[in-house]
Amino acid sequence: MSVIVYTENWDGKFKKSSYELVSYAHALASELGVETIAISIGQVPEDQLNALANYGANKVLCVKNPELAVLDNAAYASAIARAAKANNAQVVVFANNFTGKAVAPRVAVKLEAGMANSVTTLPLSFSPFVVQKNIFNGKAQGNLQINSNIKVLSLAQNSFGVKESSVSLTIENFDAQLDSSKFNTELIEKNTVSGKIILTDAELVVSGGRGMKSPDNWGPLEELAAILGAGTACSRPVADEGWRPHSEHVGQTGKVIAPNLYIALGISGAIQHLAGVSSSKVIVAVNTDPEAPFFEAADYGILGDVNKILPKLVEAAKAFKAHS
């Protein structure tokens, strides 16, 4: 019996979110009294794999079938479901991220498993198996009872945290026995921006809205983000106006993020925007309108024109960084 956790790597490296995921799987496995087994797909150096022991992984299965070189949702699901069956998994854990959303539902069908995504806590009870998850983008929480023998969960990022718990770990190779004729996702081109902080990974986010008044005013915002090591985001109107790329749009129909700090500059805080950021640990709102709904959701607020306030923040952040 086991809890299986899919630990995705990025160019052979794990991220903080991978450790959070293993921490969660280990806590779950401890409650069930079973092993925590991580599945790693592709080439990952041994020191990276060994690091998973610090968060409670008893075993890592390394899957290196050539069919998995490109993300083919069906091939990945086949490999993970096969490993889950071979290890008598009771629960299979994914991150609620790009890959998790692509693969976990297919794994659930293969294992005839009920699935809960955007899970925020350890199970409230094990018999029956009930988890709490975000619904309406965090505007409410639902308690979902899963009735199948095997359960598939995907964890909302930054909801559990990284928890150290050192165990001894074994590394094994696992042949997923894939039939290459069945999988045919053809990767024609890949475009990535290097050196930019990926918004969904960012621990700190600086975000601008219509209160910024013009796309030409983004310089100080980007400077503040660069000083703090933060990602940059924007509200929907700003993306729709073409002031900023759509990839920066956070909110209900854009990206849903949960950083440690979200600084909203000139964003009023429409309910759809708040739905995408309300899980952030600390929220700062800067706005000229004292009635802006963001002040209801924020921890810190500054009333005033962002374009006048931003230079002060940049200056203070520079001074802070110089002293730390």
């Binding site: 009872q145 709102a285 921890d299």
Partner: peptide, 27 residues
């Protein structure tokens, strides 16, 4: 394979702490 058995609203946030715009750097 699953069913909702209950719901909850998120915890209410503490009141926002306002910072004077003149001393924005205090943030």
């Amino acid at each position: 394979k699953s069913t909702y058995i209950g719901f909850a609203m998120p915890k209410a946030k503490a009141k926002v702490k306002m910072i004077d715009a003149e001393n924005a750097g205090q943030l």
